[in-house]
């Protein structure tokens, strides 16, 4: 009897069964039930009420604002992520490991802190407060503040997806392109970009999902002005606090729907992405 199979055989069947039951129970309790609850609560008073809750101009404004913030923050972080990953993966320079660590910082600090730092910088009593005040510029409690906070919180997503891949790919193909006479832009668009396109899309998707769902950081810089600086997650909280739970969960279901779509696209991409990675390793 080989050692490996005897270890497997020593586990009594009830143990394996118990583990499976536990895993399923856990999954249902912490993931599946909350998701179902969102949709059930949203439809508690029927579909008409659900539908009507989206007619409120403040709800429409919240959806538009959320999309607007994402439309600004995600491209910013895509360009930054590309540039950072390019620099880290293709070049050696002093302070590289520090840069990689810094990119991860928004993951490790609480979003509340990410919001508060902007209040401390640009708020009325912040470092730049008096300067902004003199020039009659308001950053905090406006859309600008929301974009800043969201950009900070979602900064690592694209870079984090690209750095390991680009490092694994090395610089051979770019070097070959250069010897064949391709300029840097041409090399980027014809060699580098095709190699990373799935990882890039994956990063952009994650970044978008987080940008739309971010609560903590934007709550600090929002000021909660209905129809003006209340994004979807903030508006959900406002509605819930107003005992308007159908509208709150209706909005939440829309946000959950965005997330589910992102997840579906992500899963599809992942399959594709895995193939390409494998292909690249063989090459």
């Amino acid at each position: 009897m080989s050692g490996r199979s005897s270890v497997a055989r020593r586990d009594p069947p009830w143990f394996a069964g118990a583990l499976i039951v536990l895993a399923v129970f856990y999954f249902v309790l912490v993931l599946f039930l909350p998701l179902v609850t969102v949709f059930l609560e949203a439809l508690r008073k029927g579909f008409t009420e659900y539908r009507v809750s989206f007619d409120d101009p403040d709800a429409i404004a919240a959806i538009q604002l959320t999309l607007l913030v994402a439309v600004i923050a995600v491209p910013l972080n895509t360009v930054f992520g590309l540039a950072a990953a390019w620099a880290v993966a293709k070049f050696e320079f002093w302070g590289k490991s520090a840069l990689v660590t810094l990119i991860d910082l928004p993951f490790s600090i609480s979003p509340v802190i990410s919001g508060l730092v902007f209040v401390l910088l640009y708020g009325a009593n912040g470092w730049f407060g008096p300067f902004l005040d003199e020039h009659n510029i308001q950053v905090i409690f406006t859309v600008t503040g929301l974009v800043l906070a969201t950009t900070l919180v979602t900064l690592p997503f694209v870079a984090r997806e690209l750095i390991p891949l680009m490092q694994a790919q090395g610089t051979d193909e770019e070097a070959a392109a250069a010897t064949l006479g391709a300029g840097p832009w041409r090399t980027f668009f014809l060699v580098t970009l095709p190699n990373i396109r799935w990882a890039l899309m994956y990063g952009v998707l994650l970044c978008t999902a987080r940008a739309m769902g971010e609560f903590g950081a934007v709550a600090v810089v929002s000021g909660l002005i209905r129809g003006e600086t209340a994004t979807m997650p903030l508006y959900i909280e406002i509605l819930y606090n107003e005992y308007n739970s159908v509208a709150a969960f209706a909005m939440a279901s829309l946000l959950a729907l965005f997330a589910l779509i992102t997840l579906a696209v992500k899963t599809a991409l992942e399959a594709q992405f895995a193939d390409e990675l494998a292909a690249q390793r063989i090459r």
């Binding site: 101009p57 404004a61 538009q64 604002l65 607007l68 600004i72 009659n136 308001q138 950053v139 974009v147």
Partner: peptide
Amino acid sequence: MLCRQTGPWTSRRAVLGAAAAGLAG
């Protein structure tokens, strides 16, 4: 709606001008 958002101009116009108008139509 975003169309309603006309003030405070100074900060918004600089950052979002085109984007806001484009998105909100």
